[in-house]
Simulated scan of single mutants.
Amino acid sequence: MRLPTLENLKGRLPAKGFRPRFALPLLRGPLRTLGPGSVASLLKIALDVAYVLLMLLTAGLLIAFVAAIFIPISNYNVTVTAHDGGLQQPLTQPLLLFGLGALTAWVGGFLLILRNLRLIFRTLTAGDPFRPENVRRLRAIGLTLATVTAGVWVAQGMVAAGLVPGQMDPQGFGELLTPIFSVLVVFVLAEVFREGARLRRESELTI
């Protein structure tokens, strides 16, 4: 039996640039960040799922808030714990309504933020991010985040001062640094998108 020589094998070797049939389609090109099938489209799906879940949670909290108005509350206590012990606080109807209302407003604020984020990522998935409406959406996100931050600060201060004095500390300025920084970043991004939309409009008029 004769072994095949190198000259005989040359005709059987695949040509240069041969790509096997089992190559994955996702590996044919670099991973895109914008457009259909990109990272933005995957994040858009995640935002859609989170938006639906948060909408269901908001609806459940609203139902609980309305039910707490008509259902009498009695003989219930809540325990507020601290480093040096705890405090037994009777669960009255005004206290329950305050807690449910504050929680509903907090979740509803993030629902509005997710709604605007979904619309922004819809334009990213379409490959057209610099639209004037995205500037308004980013500003709405910044205002909502600022309102939620201020509401949490006021609500925690009211609880610490009036409802459970000595058991809860109000928010300090250091705890507000991260939310304030986030609000400023969102407003800066809104200005970046506004400038991008202006440059795009000027280029279209030039063409």
Score class of each variant (00 low, 15 high):
residue 5 T to K: 06
residue 5 T to P: 02
residue 8 N to I: 12
residue 8 N to G: 15
residue 10 K to Q: 10
residue 11 G to I: 07
residue 12 R to H: 13
residue 13 L to M: 08
residue 14 P to G: 03
residue 15 A to F: 08
residue 20 P to C: 01
residue 20 P to M: 00
residue 22 F to V: 06
residue 23 A to W: 11
residue 24 L to F: 11
residue 24 L to S: 15
residue 26 L to R: 14
residue 28 R to L: 11
residue 37 G to Q: 04
residue 38 S to R: 00
residue 39 V to P: 00
residue 39 V to K: 03
residue 43 L to K: 08
residue 44 K to R: 14
residue 46 A to E: 15
residue 46 A to V: 08
residue 46 A to S: 13
residue 48 D to W: 02
residue 48 D to F: 12
residue 49 V to S: 08
residue 50 A to I: 05
residue 54 L to P: 03
residue 55 M to H: 10
residue 55 M to F: 11
residue 56 L to M: 10
residue 63 I to Y: 08
residue 65 F to L: 15
residue 66 V to N: 10
residue 69 I to N: 12
residue 69 I to L: 15
residue 72 P to T: 00
residue 78 V to D: 05
residue 79 T to V: 15
residue 81 T to C: 07
residue 81 T to F: 11
residue 82 A to E: 13
residue 83 H to K: 13
residue 85 G to I: 00
residue 87 L to R: 13
residue 97 L to M: 07
residue 97 L to V: 02
residue 97 L to K: 04
residue 98 F to E: 07
residue 99 G to P: 05
residue 99 G to C: 14
residue 103 L to Q: 08
residue 104 T to L: 15
residue 104 T to G: 15
residue 109 G to D: 01
residue 114 L to Q: 03
residue 116 N to C: 04
residue 116 N to A: 07
residue 117 L to G: 05
residue 119 L to T: 06
residue 121 F to V: 01
residue 122 R to F: 06
residue 128 D to S: 07
residue 134 N to W: 00
residue 134 N to Y: 04
residue 134 N to C: 03
residue 135 V to G: 04
residue 136 R to Q: 06
residue 137 R to Q: 03
residue 139 R to E: 06
residue 139 R to D: 05
residue 143 L to C: 07
residue 143 L to K: 09
residue 147 T to A: 10
residue 150 A to V: 13
residue 153 W to I: 13
residue 160 A to W: 03
residue 162 G to P: 10
residue 163 L to V: 15
residue 163 L to C: 05
residue 163 L to E: 09
residue 167 Q to P: 06
residue 167 Q to T: 13
residue 180 I to F: 13
residue 181 F to L: 14
residue 182 S to N: 15
residue 184 L to H: 07
residue 184 L to C: 06
residue 185 V to A: 13
residue 189 L to A: 15
residue 189 L to S: 12
residue 190 A to H: 00
residue 190 A to V: 01
residue 191 E to V: 07
residue 194 R to L: 07
residue 195 E to L: 14
residue 196 G to H: 01
residue 197 A to H: 02
residue 198 R to D: 10
residue 202 E to P: 06
residue 204 E to H: 06
residue 204 E to N: 07
